[in-house]
Structure formats: structure tokens, C-alpha cells
Write a protein that binds this DNA or RNA. Structure first.
Lengths: 219, 219
DNA sequence: AAGTGGTCTAGACCACAAT
DNA sequence: TTGTGGTCTAGACCACTTT
């Protein structure tokens, strides 16, 4: 199912496969020809070339830099799903983790936060917004809302789904609007079941994958 | 970070927000106006409308049906990350699970499968390809390669990342080429560490989210 | 100034579904 | 046949980077 066997592929998809083959012959960070050159060379329109390039960037095979060019991307990094940070995971891959705090403050809980954190509507909630980095490159935007009176987190429910980059996220993450992202939300509680925090993280899908180990529940 | 505050939004993105607002006023399965009508009404080109519609479909807000029209989508379903099936999860959401076997057979292990399953190159490996359904709608394509001599799986390493639908996957899953998908791979072992199977599943990102519960490892 | 990627347009033509 | 979404084109113009 990884190939297009059995389905008629649109022209842009064949272009995409040709370009993917090109990236395999080149190393990471190698530049590939300009869009207008590719359109001529592949006897197609720039629009068609661009659709192929955009998808390859969305899959983490190419990096596109406005004004500079398009380059072969480095492989994805991964992180283990857990409650604490994933910094050690990155180091184990030879990638230097980092973080930049974008905003810290208190906000009044709206109805949604009130329900998630177990505080009254209008009560103050701690809000922290951070940019997570891998080798200095933006990896994710993480927004935490924390109940200021809660204890330490002992367990958490995590959801993972796809989303598309908003203009704001695209700017922060150095990617394009509409590129696929991994949206991870985590709702943590103390051992007593008291809500601690609610974290919403948007990871660049082209750069990140999650890993977790499962045990069979029933045997 | 869910809004476009702070970043200049392209025109198609404002169109997208207007259409999203429209879906909120309508119920699931309600039809929305045709692309050409929207282009006139919103004083833009059909291309711009289509980019907005495509992203909304990728986010699971709209369903587009070739020749029929565009409709408000139903909410995503979710599944728990675990080694056995997710059928009970779906039933708990009032969704009827199903599966259709696409292909069953034996293939000779290539180098990759040999390494993953611990069998010699050229040795036979069981291959099963299935289409997972939710309320009769395609939800995922699942390909399993199994070591025929292995015992029961006791643990598994799971990775979750984004990918884009290939023409073949798009056909099977009733979606469009290039739409964002959740790629889940699972490598299972017995309690003794013997490889059992390797499963590659492509879930429609617009229809599915994963849920898992974590415990803090160190306290 | 020149070259790159990013957005947007207006239109042609195709494929599919309903009438 | 008509209306829908799907693909593709050729070109204009903008934004960013480098020279």
C-alpha cells in the first residue's frame, strides 16, 4: 500500500515520485532545482510541480526556504509518549533539545478550562506558551494551562491526531500554512484524580514521530 | 495558538475560517454551496475556495464527494493505543466496527522483513491486508506481516506519525490523494523477546484520533 | 537587481452523480 | 444533459534572500 499500484495517479503524483527519487540520490541539505526549472525539465506547469513539492515537504522529505530554495530534509526525530519531557529522547538521537518561552501569565478560566482543571469560571489559571527546539530548529509549540493549586501529576490521558498548521503556528515553526502537524493534547491528574494541567502541543509532522511501548492487557 | 492572531493570513485562510463558521451553523451531513457559487459569493477564485475546502476536509470538518457535493462532516472517532483491536472503543462511541480482508497470502521475506521478524531472507512470511471500517465507512488500511513460527504477542513498540494518502490509499479510504493520515506502525514481540509481527496501519487523519493513558515513570 | 518560493487568478478540460 | 468536484495550465504579482 505504499505504492500507487492499482490506482491511476495524477500527474503531480508522478512528479512527486520522480522528485522523491532525486532526493534519494542526494544527501541531506542538498539543494534541488528551482520550481520554474523543474516545470520546464518535467514538461509541466509550476503549479503541478509546487503541489508535488508541498506534499514532499509535508512528509518531511524536503525543506523549502522562502527566497533561498528547496533542500533535501534530514530524517525525522522521535519522542517517547510520557508525562515528563522528551529531552532525553532527543539527546539519544544526537539532537540537542531546547526550548524558548514565548509567553507566561495568568488568565481567567473560561468554561472549557474550568471543566478541564476543576477551577471556577473566572478563577486564575497559569498559562505558559513555549517553543520546543531540536538542534535549534523549531519542533513544536506547546501551550500549558495549569491549576495553580494542584499537586504533582501522576497520570495523564494523551490524545494524538493530525491537524494543519495555522498561519501563526506556521510562522513560529518555520513551515507553511496548511502543512500536516501532530496535535498532542495531555490532561494530567494527581494520584487522587485532581486535575493538574492541560497541555496542547502542535508538532511539525514532517520532523517528529511518537514512540510508545505497549503491554498486552489481557492474555 | 489556535487562531491566526499575530500572523498575516493568506486569503484562502480567511475563506477557510468563514467556511468553518458556516459549518458550525449547520449540522452534520448538511450540504454546503458548490465551489463555483462560493467563489462568486466570496469574491475570489475557485482555486482559492478549493484550497480552503481541501484543508477543511483534511481536518475532518467537511466531506467532499465527487459529483455530489460537499457536506459537513461528523466528529472524529477515537481509539486506544493497544495491542489488540480497537473494536470495543468504537462500540463505546456508538460506532459499529467492521473489517474487510483485502488480501491474504505468503510472501518471501526481503531484508527489511527478515530483520523485523527474525526470519531468514527468502523465508515465507504471512501477509494480511485489511480495510478497517467504522459504521461501514473506511477508516484505515492495515497491513500485517507475521512470523508464522512465532508465539503470542506480549508487548509491542508503536510509532505514530503523519503521512499523506497515496493514490491507492485514497481510493480504498474514500478520500483524496495527499490528505493527511496517521501512520501507525507496531512491532510486536513475545514475552521472550521473539518478534511476532509487524503492522503498518494508515488511518484517515480526518476521522480518527488516538488516546492513551500514561503513568509518571519517575516521581 | 536578480533569483527564489508564496499567493492568486481565470479558464480549460476531465470524471462522477443525479435527472 | 446538467451540475458537481478533480486536475492542470500559463501567467501575474508579492515576499524574501542573496549578490
Amino acid at each position: 500500500m505504499t505504492t500507487d499500484a492499482g490506482a491511476r495517479a495524477p500527474k503531480y503524483y508522478r512528479v512527486k515520485e520522480q522528485l522523491l527519487e532525486l532526493t534519494r540520490t542526494l544527501g541531506p541539505d542538498a539543494p534541488i532545482p528551482a520550481e520554474r526549472s523543474l516545470a520546464v525539465a518535467l514538461r509541466t506547469s509550476r503549479t503541478t510541480v509546487r503541489r508535488a513539492l508541498r506534499e514532499l515537504a509535508g512528509e518531511g522529505r524536503l525543506d523549502r526556504v522562502h527566497g533561498k530554495g528547496t533542500f533535501v530534509a534530514r530524517p525525522k526525530v522521535y519522542g517517547t509518549l510520557r508525562l515528563d519531557s522528551c529531552a532525553e529522547d532527543l539527546r539519544a538521537q544526537g539532537v540537542e533539545p531546547g526550548a524558548r518561552t514565548l509567553d507566561v501569565g495568568r488568565v481567567a478560566a473560561d468554561e472549557k478550562l474550568s471543566g478541564l482543571l476543576g477551577v471556577g469560571v473566572g478563577e486564575p489559571v497559569l498559562r505558559v506558551e513555549r517553543l520546543l527546539l531540536a538542534d535549534g530548529e523549531p519542533l513544536a509549540v506547546e501551550t500549558t494551562h495549569r491549576n495553580p493549586g494542584a499537586g504533582h501529576a501522576a497520570e495523564g490521558e494523551v490524545t494524538v491526531e493530525t491537524t494543519l498548521a495555522t498561519p501563526c503556528e506556521a510562522t513560529l515553526l518555520h513551515t507553511d500554512v496548511g502543512q500536516p502537524m501532530l496535535l498532542v493534547t495531555r490532561h494530567s491528574r494527581t494520584a487522587d484524580g485532581e486535575p493538574v494541567d492541560w497541555v496542547r502541543s502542535v508538532y511539525r509532522g514532517a520532523r517528529y514521530r511518537f514512540v510508545t511501548t505497549l503491554l498486552r492487557a489481557t492474555d
